[in-house]
Amino acid sequence: MTDATLDEVGTAPARHDKGPLIYRQSAWTRVTHWVWAICLFFLLLTGLNIFNARPQLYWGQESGFEYDNTFFRISSEAVDGKLQGYVEMFGNRFVTTGVLGVSGNDTRKAFPGWATIPSYYDLGTARVVHFFFGWILVAALFVWALASFFNGHFIRDIVPKPRDVAGLPADIVDHATLRFKHTRSYSPLQKFAYAGVFFILFPVIILTGLTMSPGMNAVAPFLLDLFGGRQTARSIHFIAMALLVLFFVVHIIMVLLAGPFNELRSMITGWYRASPGEPVDPGKGDR
């Protein structure tokens, strides 16, 4: 930066230090992103209410009552006259009083009221809300897939290429040392994370959801075989939920570390402040 340019345009150099403002996210991507955010919020909280009806997970076609095929449970028991909540996973027990198993006014409840919709146990209502947002999620996914296929987002940003695999180690180092590059394209880790959600977690959570429907079992019995039974499908649905929550947590941490204003702006207005030196595309209005 020379004195000449400073004299010439006053405050302009700051803008050049920041790098160009580029149009990064199409309206299709932005709208479907927020639709999913809303859907996943309601699907998660109603899903936890639904889980509270039977806070156990089983392997296989059915639930063992006269034999044991439970591998996960949230439950409670009285210990020295006081209720104790616990989570039991593959035979290992963790005391979780106050959050899981027992919460609020010493109430026996798997997930606490603040984590469920409705805040009280209401299976019928939770199912109504869950299925409504399930439809919206799938519809938005359909719209996004179509639009992204035609506008190039899908191939350009989501599908990892050989060079993304090659660039993975360096990108992991960059993320671990919090050196974020603000480029038009997604970094290798980003691509793998989004590909994992779109190609694995979303299909798995949707298909395992359908596998729990007795009506769908009649028309698509192969789903039962694909997932190894209705109860296994229910368990996989729960595990996929946990992985989506993990994705959400990492996603939010990354947004906060990479610059929440810039990241949020790009997902609301489409405009993103790239690192200095990032090529601009005047055809898209970049400046």
Partner: peptide, 26 residues
């Protein structure tokens, strides 16, 4: 907290009735 939605989701409430369209679709 999630009790923000409790009242609106009771049977007969307009929001509840709208969401139940999802079940009709299913």
């Amino acid at each position: 907290g999630c009790d923000a939605f409790d009242g609106m989701l009771k049977v007969g409430q307009p929001l509840r009735s709208a969401l139940e369209k999802g079940n009709e679709l299913s």
